[in-house]
Every structure is written in C-alpha cells, then in structure tokens.
Design a binder for these strands. Structure first.
Lengths: 159, 159
DNA sequence: TATTGTTATACTCTATAACTATA
DNA sequence: TATAGTTATAGAGTATAACAATA
C-alpha cells in the first residue's frame, strides 16, 4: 500500500461510492436487475423439479391448449420453431410431454401432456404462486396489479 | 383437410384463441415480455455503433468511475470476474477502454475510457435517452417514475 | 408456393475451476 | 491466506439457413 508517488487514489473509487452514470434513469437497467432477482428465486423454487422458466411456460401452454403444434407453441412464447425442437425434446425425454401424430395435418404433431406432465403441472402451479408471493411481498395488492399493468403497456407493440 | 375420422379439432386451438394458463398472473412472464421489447429496441438503437446493453453499462460505469478495477466493475454489474475479461477485451480491442497499470496494486488494472470511448459515450447517452423515451411513450411521467420505483422494490434483496 | 419439423451451425451470455502474480 | 486477472471449459438460450415431407 506504500505509495510515495503522486496520490491518485481519489480517481479509483471504492466499492461504496460508485457513480452509476445515467443507468439509474434507465428502464432497461432496473428491468434487468428485477429479472435477475426473479430468475434466481424461480431457479431456487424449482431446484428439486429442475424446470426452467421457459419450460414452465411451454408446459402451461400445452396444459391449457392440448393438441397445439410446435410452431404455434413457438409463436406463443416468441421463439423460433427450430429453437422449440430442443425444448420439446427435453420435455419429451422426461416423459412430461408427448408428440402425437396430428389427425388433421401429417406435417405436424399434436402436443399433449402425459399423466406425469399433468401431475407435475398440478404441483408446479402452487410452487410458482408461492414464488410470486415471495417476489411481491414488498408490494400491496394494487401496486402488484399496477406493476403488471405498466409492464404490459411497456411490452405492447404499439399503444 | 379432409377428415372422415373423429373430429378432435376443438382440442387443437387456433392461434387467436390461446389460453395462457396462469402465465398472465405471473410477474416473471410480463417482465420477460417487457425486457424482450426493450432489448429489441436497444439493439435497433445501437445498430450503427454495435453496443450491447451490457457493454453500455460497463462503459457508463468506467466513464463515471475512471480507474476502477475489473473486479469492482464485475461486482457492480453483477457478473463474475472471469466473465468481465471478455467484455473488457472487446471494448479494449475497439479502443474504447484502456487497461492502465494500477499505481497502487500491481495485480490489478485501472480502467479508463480512451478519447474515443469518451466521445462515444457522449454520443450514446442521447441515443439511449431517446430509446428510453420511445419505450415509455405510452406512460405518463408519474407512471414512468412509479414503474422504476416498483422495479427497484422488486429487485431489492430484502425490503 | 407455403408451412411443419428438423438438423447443422454459430453466437451471446453466463458460470465454475484452476492457474499466476501479487497483496 | 486472500485477491486480481486470466484461461479452459461448459452450459443455457438464442438465431439463421437449408432440407424433406406435406399442405
């Protein structure tokens, strides 16, 4: 620590006194930090069952729309068809989802949950609701609803 | 489309009538969609300068804290030291950031912006502010501030 | 012609573990 | 002993381009 040359220590801020420039004014900055927190809690919530947020979304979609195709599923969650292949592969290998031949279109599959998938979803929904409650524990009911409303309006393509 | 077997078409929902299960109740679902929108607009905003959100954060941090170390930078943005290496490598190769030998600790570098980095940041801040305005065009000033406040409270480790 | 599922390939972002040189 | 920077490696998560089968 001996320093008998010019002292420029003040140009090397310590941890506690960081200046975050315009970052604190930016929506994206706060969004990233909030999402980080959500992902961490979700991962911890799903530690035993090893389900990612993306997988949960796909399972929920198939649960509520039995028979939907991979392409429809991909469009619904906003990823490419080609990306969806591996997602369904993983869920099928775990025997949570089944690819049935579509009765109306020989190019596509009708996706359905297996009995195991249905039972897992019944287990997951309460888990996810408790995860949600933990996250929003610091918010009142109206605040929670307003946050969702503001996020929806932010993600809306136009107005 | 001919189908002379049992008609189970109703079990194969069309695009417009999808049921999203409990997803619309979940903060993480809306957060992901909002962040997707933000990332897309940010990428488009930075098309010419090719700066990612993560790179912008690091540039802003170094701009406002000249001389900070890589480790401090990594802690500030919440990634690992090892991950920061490639980030700084890229910025250094583009001659935006310089690794100077620290005058007080021979293990570390003092990170500073080059003249080019400083000029780029001066160009970037207005670009990012306009990106921010586009995103929040549908929100009033108070709504925008409340959204940031709610996000901060969501990402806060405890209260 | 357009769409479905698929493969091959690649890129970004991230982490862990182990190393070296300092502190 | 602990820390700063680095490397090697790996794993999500994503995309694009091209293909065969089918619509």
């Amino acid at each position: 620590m001996a320093n008998d040359t010019l002292d420029i220590t003040e140009a090397r801020p310590t941890e506690g006194s960081l200046d975050f420039d315009i970052l604190p004014e930016l929506m994206g900055y706060h969004m990233r930090r909030a999402q980080l927190r959500i992902f961490q809690d979700f991962a911890e919530t799903m530690r035993d069952v090893q389900i990612t947020p993306g997988q949960f979304g796909v399972l929920a979609l198939i649960a509520s729309n039995p028979g939907m195709t991979q392409s429809a599923c991909a469009r619904a969650v906003g990823i490419e068809r080609s990306t969806m292949v591996a997602v369904i592969d993983a869920l099928e290998q775990r025997k949570l989802v089944e690819r049935r031949p579509s009765p109306v279109d020989k190019r596509s599959y009708a996706l359905v949950l297996t009995m195991g998938g249905i039972k897992l979803m019944e287990e997951l929904r309460p888990l996810v609701r408790r995860h949600e409650d933990r996250l929003t524990a610091g918010l009142s009911g109206p605040e929670r609803r307003q946050l969702i409303d503001l996020l929806r309006r932010l993600s809306a393509p136009k107005g």
